[in-house]
Simulated assay, not measured.
Amino acid sequence: MTASSSRVALVTGGGRGIGRAISLGLAADGMDVAVNFRRDREAAEATVEEIRSAGRRAQAYQASVDLLDDDRRLVEAVLADFGRLDVLVCNAGIASRGQSVVNTDPVELERVMRTHAFGAHHLCQLAVPAMREQERGDVILISSVATLTHAANGGPYNMAKAALEALGYTLAKEELRHDIRVNIVAPGLVDTTMGQKLMRAVAGVDDLRALDPSMPFGHVCTPDDVANVVRWLVSPQNTYVTGQKINVDGLANFLR
């Protein structure tokens, strides 16, 4: 693969759900996209093929973001293949198991924290130096409106997303002088596999679309709703926004 003159985005967890929508959206906006996956190679390759069919370059990369060695290998491979890196979207994530603090397995706590917070820190540390070489860089951290309420029985997830946001606010200040914008995008309930599993577990809802009439604007948030915010934040239209968190939930948490 020859070096690219187009902006290059690395999207972790980029083959499915929100990550897939972001990968496709950035490609539609003229970027080449490195699509990271942990296990679902088939989904990642399908996303890559869709991007290529639209005329942009794309490649799938297997890496578990909670492992520093994997993160180092991932960033090195993207830079070797594309020749540059302009946009990092830290989207990969996992859910916690809904236990109280007292009943949480320490192994689960560490796994969730490493995936959301440590992994994002590793990737920023590895990717930002390459972004400094470009005219502009963008880092997007996909968090959650869970940090607005810190609901019971979600300690690992709440803690991990709060740490992720702390990383974003800190990095935005550090990299301002390098023309790198760092922003946080925080969805609520989204129509993804994870969202479907969550609502099945907590509310016995098998079809998220059945919730549409009760949701803001008449529908459950979609991956494209989230991707559209990311697309604007990394676009030329965003000239002056950094160090911000945008909640993408239609104010659902405040209407209940």
Rank of each mutant, 00 (worst) to 15 (best):
S5M: 10
R7N: 07
T12P: 03
G13T: 11
G19H: 10
A21K: 03
A21P: 04
G25T: 07
A28Y: 01
D32N: 10
F37S: 09
R41Q: 14
E45T: 14
T47A: 09
E50R: 15
S53E: 14
R56I: 00
Q59H: 13
D69E: 14
D69T: 14
R73Q: 14
L74R: 06
A77P: 00
A77E: 10
V78R: 01
G83F: 06
R84H: 05
D86I: 03
V87T: 13
V89P: 09
N91R: 07
A95D: 13
G98C: 03
S100W: 09
S100K: 09
T104F: 00
T104M: 02
M113N: 09
H116D: 05
H116F: 11
A120S: 15
A120N: 09
L126C: 06
A127W: 11
V128F: 12
P129F: 08
V139E: 13
S143F: 01
T147P: 01
T147V: 14
T147K: 07
L148E: 15
M159S: 14
A160R: 03
K161H: 08
L164T: 06
T170R: 11
L171D: 11
E174A: 13
E175L: 13
D179G: 02
A186C: 03
D191F: 01
M194S: 04
M194E: 05
G195F: 03
G195H: 11
V205I: 15
A210S: 15
L211S: 07
D212I: 02
S214E: 14
P216A: 12
V226F: 09
A227Y: 07
P236G: 12
Q244W: 00
N247Y: 13
D249C: 15
D249M: 05
G250I: 05
A252E: 15
N253T: 13
R256G: 14
